[in-house]
Design a protein around this nucleic acid. Structure first.
Lengths: 162, 162
DNA sequence: TATTGTTATACTCTATAACTATA
DNA sequence: TATAGTTATAGAGTATAACAATA
């Protein structure tokens, strides 16, 4: 950094103004920022509770979609996840190397693969779904049943209205 | 990849099952996933409208906090942003090189810097706040005034309840 | 001893462009 | 020509550990 520094005799630090509080008002009135903060907060619950399973959010989402939609292609699943199919390749590689998901080459269209959970994957997901439900329960308990359902509805209304 | 592939004669592809639809139900019932999708969706509005200004969301948040809290330290601002102070260093470096923010060394505590917008930063932010308000307006219009206010409240209740 | 700013490093998620093999 | 999967690459955001200067 080659920029000159001025000296400030009125700096607001915790040492000279212990009562000083940061004003975030303008930011917290925004949906974008508030969504980001809420997601960061939700991620903490996810990590705390899902930690023993060592399944990242993106992996869990992919596993759920393959489980609920066996035989679909990588393009179909990645599109449903809202990610680029290019980014889904390495994610799938991981899940396949972990022995949870299987790519089966399709007869009808030899360009594509049909995706399935393996036996191990099925076994894992039986447990993962239960643990994940605990994480969701922890989040829902922050708001109570009524408001967490309401939040869910509003989030979908928001995301679908684009 | 060294894993054997089976052949699947029942692959669910768009070519042989054009009516086939992916079932995401289990995911969309989750707050974590729904928050992530909503944020991704919100980011599109932000990028579309803020694009000409070339200010990223993290930069905008930092600029707003420095503007509203002149003279505070890097630690104070980064804590209010919910990010690590280590990650705030390069963000600030950018903003300083762009000529929008100034680090002034403090007399009272020579370890820390007091942060201020520059004249250029003030000028920029007058415009940026207006453009950002347009982005927020676009998001709010997805839900209508009542529901967007409700969503905002629920997001804060959720994030603050950790 | 504790805190401020910093560097270094790594991981996760996302995006784009271009390639190949099939269709 | 178009599509499915892939590779390569880059950019953001996040996290942790460790260090020097200062308190």
């Amino acid at each position: 950094m080659t920029i000159k520094k001025h000296v400030d005799k009125d700096a607001q630090t915790s040492s000279n103004r212990s009562e000083a509080v940061i004003h975030t008002g303008d930011l917290e009135r925004g949906l974008g920022y508030s969504l980001r903060r809420a997601l960061m907060s939700a991620t903490k619950d996810y990590e705390r509770i899902m930690n023993p399973l060592e399944i990242r959010p993106a992996q869990y989402a992919a596993l759920i979609l393959v489980r609920n939609n066996p035989g679909f292609s990588q393009s179909a699943i990645s599109q449903a996840l809202g990610i680029q199919r290019a980014n889904f390749v390495s994610l799938l590689d991981e899940l396949e190397e972990l022995g949870w998901v299987e790519r089966r080459s399709s007869q009808k269209d030899r360009r594509s693969f049909a995706l399935y959970l393996t036996k191990q994957g099925e076994t894992l997901m039986k447990r993962a779904v239960l643990v994940h439900a605990e994480a969701e329960k922890a989040m829902a308990q922050r708001l109570g049943a009524h408001d967490s359902k309401l939040l869910l509805q509003l989030l979908h209304k928001f995301a679908d209205a684009i």
